[in-house]
Simulated assay, not measured.
Amino acid sequence: MTPDMTWWVRLADSVRAAGRGEAPLDEPVRMVRDGLGFDCATLVGPQRATNGEAQPVLVNLDYPGDAIRFISTTYAVECPAHRYITEHRVAGRFIDLPYDFRSSRTYREALKPNGFHEGLTLPLGVLRHGTPRPGFLALSSTHGRPLSDDSLLALTMLASEIASLTDPRATLPPAPADLVVWVGRGRLDVRVGDLAEGPFTARDTIRIGDLHQRTGAALGFRHREGSRGWWHVTTAPTGDGVLIRVQQAEGDDHLTPRELDVVGLLSRGWTNDEIAAALGISVRTTRTHVESALMKVGVPNRTALTREALLRDLDSLDAIRCVAQASRTSLPA
């Protein structure tokens, strides 16, 4: 099946919209599956170093449970076909393999039992020794017709943009997010990860989106969640909502959560008296936190600390809440 040029342009637009978080991830994946004549499709994200063997399944369109588990584990880890396709960095069909795929464990245990006779894997990254495995798009069909050469080439050329679907974002951060959530109109849509594994409840996540709207600017802050450590949170406008990206992070310079609150407000020009009143602590305690932060960050004065705070997102959710509250009081915002 070979779609015309108009279809490929629409697919590219759909991929970009989902990559920016402006559309659900399954929209372009469904378009690929239906437009290229497959029965099932799955988008599998890159492996994270701490996740063990399984790679995260971001989208599953009609693969049975046993097949999708096999694809995201055994196929991704052990199958020579997957390794061959990933190393060659091109979309691979069964007929492109240098051996009879029907003799493989993947065909015997996952594909044949479900009636699949043809398939394709699109690698979404480069496989390098000692690095986590990249994500991929897998498709299967119950008919035996391989994808045309023209469509194979066009799909391969879109691979770098399709890779953005494994980590939707408005900007290019230094590391993949553990959680990406779209918030708008009082609801949320998880695009990457599991909300239950993140540091915020659904209600708090919606509140972060509201704070973004109220402050009128993208947010970047650090948050400590009990025994699960530190998280780095950023927000960006997208479509008619807000895209919230959350990733685990090291505690910056060993600042305590309260010191981070103080630094966040200090970087906005707040005085010790104003910070103390907003956080409900004494001025003396505020001064102690400032002095401790100066020493930990390694800067000589408040001006230098402000500069470092802006460069390194040394801010907190409580500080941002204080800023939003200050817009209705005499405190500076």
Rank of each mutant, 00 (worst) to 15 (best):
V242C: 10
K112C: 05
S14V: 02
G241E: 14
I95N: 09
R207D: 14
L127R: 03
N60V: 02
D318Y: 11
A319W: 08
L314Y: 03
D96H: 09
L305E: 12
N60W: 03
L331I: 00
F70Y: 14
L260T: 08
T286R: 11
G216T: 02
W7K: 07
G125W: 12
L255C: 05
G65C: 06
L155F: 06
T306G: 15
A218Y: 08
N272I: 00
R102G: 07
G269R: 15
R328D: 05
L36A: 09
I320R: 10
V9Y: 14
T106P: 01
T6W: 12
V29Y: 14
S330N: 00
I162P: 10
R245I: 00
T73E: 13
R20T: 07
V32D: 15
E291F: 10
F221Q: 13
Y107E: 12
L139C: 13
T215W: 06
I85E: 09
R145N: 04
R284I: 04
A196Q: 07
P146V: 06
R328Q: 06
A177H: 05
G251M: 14
N301T: 02
E27T: 09
A326W: 03
P132E: 08
S327C: 01
D4K: 10
V242A: 06
H88W: 05
V290A: 10
D204K: 15
L139W: 08
R307G: 00
S160T: 09
A177L: 04
Q213I: 03
D240M: 03
P28E: 14
P134M: 10
T205G: 01
W230K: 09
D34A: 13
G264N: 05
D204V: 04
G298R: 06
R20F: 10
Q325L: 05
M157A: 13
T238A: 15
G186A: 05
D13L: 12
D210M: 06
R10M: 13
P199H: 11
R214F: 03
R93M: 02
N301H: 10
Q247A: 12
Y107N: 12
P168A: 09
R321G: 04
L58Y: 06
T205W: 06
P46W: 08
P98F: 01
G125R: 10
V181T: 04
L124H: 04
G119L: 07
H143D: 14
P3L: 09
T2W: 15
L188C: 02
E109I: 01
I275P: 02
S140K: 08
M1S: 15
G37A: 04
V77M: 03
G21P: 09
V180A: 15
D62N: 11
I244D: 08
R321T: 00
Q55K: 10
P113D: 11
R284D: 07
V15I: 11
M157T: 00
I68C: 06
V190H: 12
A138Q: 12
G209I: 03
R102F: 05
A196W: 01
D34T: 03
D210V: 03
G37E: 08
T166G: 05
Q55R: 14
T235K: 12
V9H: 15
V57F: 09
A91Q: 10
F101W: 09
S148C: 08
T73F: 03
G269T: 06
R224G: 03
P46V: 05
W8M: 08
A319I: 02
D149F: 09
D178Q: 01
L61H: 04
T234E: 13
G19A: 11
D4C: 06
C322P: 00
S292G: 11
P174L: 09
R214L: 11
